[in-house]
Write a protein that binds this DNA or RNA. Sequence first.
RNA 1: UCCUCGGUAGCUCAAUCGGCAGAGCAUCCGGCUGUUAACCGGAGGGUUGUUGGUUCGAAUCCAACCCGAGGAGCCA
Length: 447
Amino acid sequence: MGKVITIRQMSAHVGEAVTLEGWLYTKTGKGRLQFLQVRDGGGICQAVVFKGNVSEEAFELARALTQESSLRVTGTVKEDTRAPGIPGGYELDVTGLEVVQIADEYPIQPKEHGVEFLVRNRHLWIRSSRQWAIMRVRATVIRAIRGWLDNNGYLNVDTPILTPNAAEGTTTLFEIDFHGEPAYLAQTGQLYSEATILAFGKVYCFGPTFRAEKSKTRRHLQEFWMVEPEIAFCDLDGLMEIEEQFVSHIVQRCLEENAEELKLLERDTSALEQVTPSFPRIHYDEAVDIVNRAAAAGELVPGYEDKVPHIEWGDDFGSPHETYIAAQFDKPVFVHHYPTQVKAFYMEPEPDRPEVCRSVDLLAPEGYGEITGGSERMADVDKLIAGIEEHELPMAAFDWYVDLRRYGTVVHSGFGLGLERTVAWICGLTHLREAIAFPRTLGSMRP
RNA sequence: UCCUCGGUAGCUCAAUCGGCAGAGCAUCCGGCUGUUAACCGGAGGGUUGUUGGUUCGAAUCCAACCCGAGGAGCCA
């Protein structure tokens, strides 16, 4: 038995006797020759078992291997351009084989499967090379998020998941029993981050958030991860500059670190290479004009068979509108100054034009929709109290939040970036459920 | 919540006008020294989502229900 190495290390061990530990991904038998595709978590390598090179017993073991059987395989590393795999180009000329377990008949074949079946078998599906690649990109996105923020003066201060009140209405909250008191799973950490910036200047929280929306689409999960930077002494223009730097950094890190994964996903990376500062900025007024010109001309929503619907000034954009607007640009596009009435109570109205507020959404290209939402927050105590009253929210629940405007209030802004939507966009996925290991979608909580 | 589509072998699907339940893959057996979702020969594998109805006869038609998909709304 040779030294145990990983598949990633094989290129440095050509000609040496080594051992790989892993699982059988697929197998092709050809008489006295067995081609084993072995996974070890970091890559896939072809191990070639020739009857003449191994014991009779070992050859029979190789023939009896089933998909996903766990094993240790020993042999000589050979360079061979014919060898498939990840990264490929090297194979193992097998001299010995130890079976850890012969797996039961494995349900997932390297063939086409339906969505229902794959979701039901998510605990196994994550072993498939495509899902494997997505999870690796996701990890890079998370590293890039933390890396950029940590290196730019942001302090990671996480916020509670159990919260006592509904910040923006109860219909989208999961209610739980907190020792007899109602409590809710957090749908944002923003209000708490507005407290922590007054202690630390620039902060971010990063964790799971929960939305009980009855949304059953490819763009929604009941549980998703969100990173929410919040910045003191920052206005709307400053916020957009931060967002474009931040998002560009994330995309470029993935291009650098996951070229192999993106290739496996057949992602067109030329579209991602263009994601560099600065991003186009359009005012809500202009966005409404763009939409209504398309509606008048009878244009179709890109990727759908429906026409672009007309919109009245003052309404929020629906999915078809956002898809159409984003398709007009080859980079993510900022839409800013949404109508005050459709946005949350804490967003700062534009002083000269209070019917719009200092809010901004970032729409990803290629139909991936809104990936960030943010705003400049209301800094004045009297205006904030008026806003809470206008939205008919329980003042008592917001006493601590109003306090923040009494003790050294400053202009401040923040945004939330949806992790799964970002991963789906970078990977070119058609559905958010592939962007998280164990998705929680409407009506489905297994496995 | 509403709209649309779907549910047949482990998986992906077929079954003409309502007339014997079928293939490919997977599994098992046999063959093959370069396979890449191999190939060749053979075998086993079915409560057609559930319940009821129409009919000589239902996978097929009707009703209700269950489950799934993706779109609207809402959102990241």
